[in-house]
């Protein structure tokens, strides 16, 4: 049996005194791919931000356990160091540091060990090739002047370099054309293995044409109201989310 990586117990959170997450329960094992779907405003991105400790979100109740230990009070950098990664819905632009230098420094920060220049450069190039990112992007400032799709691919590149135990992909597919979705999906599939886990947050199922999840959860109004296998995504596609709220799941 594979090891339990993440366990979320009755998680409630608020932002500026408004409750968003209203009791989330979710368990993720190593080697699994989970998908969270839900309409706008359900709390999907909030869950991603709470998992990564965005300072504006406050955990008001419940527990996040990572490899059996509570990480409720961890800051974002501490989470990164234990192997949690968030692919941002809106990656920030940081002028003044190149993609390559940023990632080398990040790798070193996450592992706590110095990263050798040349082997890193070589490994980075291979990852870029896999994600169909032009080599020249390595020497460009982080996300500055990147298109929406390039920023998203750059997030997956960061994930590939940092090799997290748990990767949370927040709407990585939104704003991407079909070709870019394919590239991102291929990247995710290549990186997924029996030692890590991936949590994909999305509100349409295009990405699921290329990635086969073990579980699909539906998030409505701050709670997970249904969990099933990949077929749930198809059901939502045909019936919409209304069907679930009418079922009395909430």
């Amino acid at each position: 049996m594979s090891k339990k990586l993440l366990e979320i117990q009755n998680l409630k959170s608020s932002i500026e005194h408004t409750e968003i997450l209203k009791g989330i329960n979710l368990s993720i094992n190593q080697g699994e791919i989970h998908v969270i779907m839900g309409p706008n405003g359900a709390g999907k991105s909030t869950l991603a931000n709470v998992l990564m400790s965005h300072p504006k979100h406050e955990i008001t109740e419940g527990n996040i356990l990572f490899e059996g230990e509570s990480i409720n009070g961890f800051s974002a950098d501490e989470k990164a160091k234990i192997g949690v990664f968030l692919s941002f819905q809106y990656p920030e632009e940081v002028a003044g540091i190149t993609v390559e230098n940023f990632l080398r420094a990040a790798k070193s920060a996450v592992t706590g060990e110095p990263v050798k220049f040349l082997p890193f450069k070589k490994a980075l190039r291979e990852q870029m090739k896999l994600l169909k990112i032009d080599e020249t992007y390595g020497s460009r400032y982080l996300n500055v002047g990147f298109s929406g799709g390039e920023k998203k691919k750059n997030e997956i590149l960061q994930m590939a370099v940092l090799e997290p135990k748990l990767a949370v992909l927040d709407e990585t597919d939104s704003g991407l054309d079909v070709d870019a979705i394919k590239v991102v999906a291929e990247g995710v599939n290549t990186l997924a293995n029996e030692n890590n886990a991936i949590l994909i947050i999305t509100h349409h199922k295009k990405l699921l044409d290329y990635i086969k999840p073990n579980y699909v959860h539906v998030l409505l109004d701050g709670k997970i109201v249904k969990t099933s296998d990949g077929s749930l995504a198809d059901e939502i596609e045909s019936k919409g989310y209304e069907w679930l709220s009418n079922q009395g799941g909430v």
Partner: peptide, 10 residues
């Protein structure tokens, strides 16, 4: 937040 999420201290 973005930069810290990549392992950098505040």
């Amino acid at each position: 937040f973005y930069i810290m999420s990549r392992g950098f201290s505040e």
